[in-house]
């Protein structure tokens, strides 16, 4: 159970609660028995479908009942239904599951059922099929945005969003997704899920040549710099910064960014992320861009002094800093 506070109840309170629950429990158990019996005997009727709605409303995590519901639809209902009505039934399934998601945003089985619905739109209706899919999938994108408005870190919703974008007819453009992540990040710099999504979208935009990598990277460094200055103690933007630096192939960028962070570190001398990043980037310089022995010695010294400072201000990770100091 996540995030449910513990309340110490008296014996009397527990007994009263049980009494109150008794009827509900009986009803739930007899409904469960009824539905499981029908499931066993392959009852694929409309009546059985209605009973699964009741049972799933009481317990949307009962995945075997979601399975049964899909079997009822494909075995019992769809064969005698016109393509248009099948599409309507699937739309009704989508609104039913949306109401469940509002109260249970992290239940895998509900998200799965939506995928199944979208994948079962009748395929043999030519233009009509395309129109249905277009409409259903764009609605879906809207629905998932609502879910992300409610919880911007819900990874079910982010995964589902990527799935919808990959599946909808007419590819969803990476440029639009980049704008979406900008919007999410600007409303909260601490949303690492959005930063992560940005790493994926930008990689694709650079790879396809849609965006000029060098110019776009500079803009990204500007954006993340703002975030670092707003809250240098937030991991999200530091991790993103590390992605931008990558293996540190560009000496100029590496040196420029080290300078940016050194300036920030002067204002925020106790910020461990400044020191940790400086150490990491200087190690990259050391690995690829030391042109003579003096430079090498100077960089090793700089790293050692950063690491010893890190050991004292971030003692939880002390052993890591000790290990990194073994040049």
């Amino acid at each position: 159970m996540h995030g449910v506070r513990r309340a110490r109840q008296t014996q009397e309170a527990i007994a009263a609660q049980k009494l109150k629950e008794k009827e509900k429990l009986q009803e739930y158990l007899s409904l469960t028995n009824d539905v499981l019996h029908r499931k066993k005997t392959n009852d694929f009727t409309q009546e059985a479908l209605a009973l699964t709605t009741r049972l799933l409303t009481a317990n949307p995590e009962f995945y075997s009942i979601w399975n049964y519901r899909r079997d009822i639809l494909t075995e019992g209902i769809f064969p005698q239904t016109s393509a248009k009505d099948v599409n309507d039934i699937l739309l009704a399934e989508l609104s039913l599951t949306m109401s469940f998601l509002r109260s249970h945003p992290k239940v895998y089985w509900i998200w799965n059922h939506r995928r199944w619905c979208l994948e079962h739109v009748p395929d043999d209706q030519g233009q009509q099929t395309i129109a249905w899919k277009q409409e259903n999938w764009s609605k879906e994108l809207y629905a998932v945005e609502k879910m992300l408005d409610a919880d911007a870190r819900n990874f079910h919703a982010w995964n589902y969003r990527r799935y919808v974008q990959a599946s909808m007819p007419g590819k969803y453009s990476d440029a639009d997704e980049l704008k979406y992540t900008t919007k999410k990040i600007e409303s909260n710099f601490s949303n690492f899920s959005a930063w992560h999504q940005r790493t994926k979208v930008l990689s694709s935009l650079w790879e396809t040549g849609t965006l000029d990598m060098a110019a776009s990277k500079d803009e990204e460094f500007e954006l993340v710099k703002q975030a670092l200055y707003v809250d240098p103690y937030d991991q999200s933007s530091w991790i993103y910064h590390r992605w931008l630096i990558g293996k540190g192939e560009d000496e100029g960028i590496l040196k420029r960014e080290i300078q940016v962070i050194e300036e920030l570190s002067e204002v925020e001398p106790d910020c461990k992320w400044c020191l940790e990043s400086l150490c990491h980037y200087k190690r990259l310089l050391l690995a690829s861009f030391t042109h003579n022995e003096d430079q090498r010695i100077a960089l090793v010294d700089a790293c050692q002094s950063l690491l010893s400072r890190l050991q004292s201000i971030d003692p939880y990770r002390r052993n890591r800093y000790l290990e990194l100091g073994e040049f």
Partner: peptide
């Protein structure tokens, strides 16, 4: 992540 493209 749980799938290709998903956050760590």
């Amino acid at each position: 992540g749980s799938s290709v493209g998903a956050e760590s």
